[in-house]
């Protein structure tokens, strides 16, 4: 697969093109230029590393949305076994923007639920660009309750621009569906591990993201509103999205500092999309660690800790009343 390069990656793209050309030349040439190629490859790696070392929040949100970034089903295929997808909300439809089902992780039965985006145009439309409708959230809740009934840990993968803003979604109670999940997840009697793998888009992300462990991939984002949306409201132009991304504090490192997430999962050099295999390994370890951290806790203690975490959200001051 040919890598799609983002705007700020153009210097890397140029180098990679050059390497590609040299390889082509090498094929029908008597001169050995493999040393030269090796040298350039190393240079490309270093360049990638240095560019990725100082990404702005806006650039990170581009990486989080990268078309070749691993999605929920990629993780399911690589680090889980025996995935049995379960469909539908039993009331209206099966929402393809959220996938879920039973699977094994290191042999242990778990419930996996995640947003799902599509790769090509057809699949993107099929997945509604990863934007769930109420039936998606209701399917997710149904699967969580199923997991609760049989004592299975719930693993959620968050990757959505947001809940779908459509006519039908409103008619069928988008708000209620999201709110209901927040309420039910707060008291779900099994461990919940949440990983933001790409875009954590507002309420549409939060609706499957109340967990005992909340972790984010290094170049994922999690935000109350998209940078574009915020910019068009507060700056009156979407062109100010880079400023909004900066101001909103949407990156994993910033949110870790703010105490809103537990852990950052390191991505391969140049982002998860550059090396899926390596990303899968890192994810497998992260989930394994997260499961270990909650597995021997009694359910009531787990729920108390979860509740205290939820109550601890927010920063304010207390002043004496006159």
């Amino acid at each position: 697969m040919k890598t799609t390069f983002l705007d700020f990656e153009q210097p890397i793209a140029e180098l990679e093109n050059k390497i590609e050309e040299l390889r082509y030349v090498q094929d029908d040439s008597a001169v050995d230029i493999s040393v030269e190629i090796g040298h350039l490859e190393k240079k490309s790696q270093e360049l990638t590393k240095s560019i990725y070392a100082k990404l702005t929040p806006w650039q990170i949100s581009q990486v989080a949305r990268h078309p070749q970034r691993p999605y929920t089903l990629d993780y399911l295929a690589a680090i889980f076994t025996d995935f049995e997808e379960l469909h539908g909300d039993r009331a209206f439809a099966d929402d393809h923007a959220i996938v879920g089902g039973l699977a094994r992780f290191n042999g242990q039965s778990v419930m996996v639920i995640g947003h799902q985006k599509g790769r090509d145009t057809k699949e993107k439309i099929h997945r509604n660009f990863g934007m769930p409708r109420p039936e998606g959230y209701r399917k997710a809740l149904r699967l969580m309750k199923l997991a609760e009934k049989f004592g299975l840990p719930v693993l959620t993968f968050v990757d959505t621009p947001g809940a779908y803003p459509g006519i039908g979604a409103e008619e069928r109670g988008q708000s209620e569906a999201i709110g209901r999940n927040l309420f039910e997840m707060a008291k779900l009697r099994v461990p919940v591990i949440t990983t933001v793998i790409g875009e954590g888009g507002s309420g549409g992300a939060l609706a499957i993201a109340i967990g005992d462990v909340v972790q984010m991939l290094q170049y994922s984002t999690y935000s109350v509103i998209s940078p574009e949306g915020c910019a068009s409201i507060l700056w009156k132009t979407a062109e100010k999205a880079p400023d909004a991304a900066e101001a909103l504090g949407i990156t994993a490192s910033r949110l870790k500092t703010l105490g809103l997430i537990d852990k950052i999962v390191t991505e391969p050099v140049g982002g998860a999309h550059r090396n899926h295999a390596q990303m899968m390994q890192a994810m497998k370890k992260a989930i394994s660690d997260a499961l270990k951290s909650v597995s021997d806790k009694p359910v009531d203690a787990l729920l108390d800790t979860r509740f205290e975490r939820l109550m601890g959200y927010g920063q304010f001051k207390e002043v004496p009343i006159q």
Partner: peptide, 22 residues
């Protein structure tokens, strides 16, 4: 809706208010 100017902390108030209702 949620207050943008407080970033993700505002989003988390959705979770907080819903949780206390349990």
């Amino acid at each position: 809706g949620a207050r943008m100017q407080e970033g993700l902390n505002s989003l988390m108030q959705m979770a907080k208010t819903s949780a206390i209702l349990t």
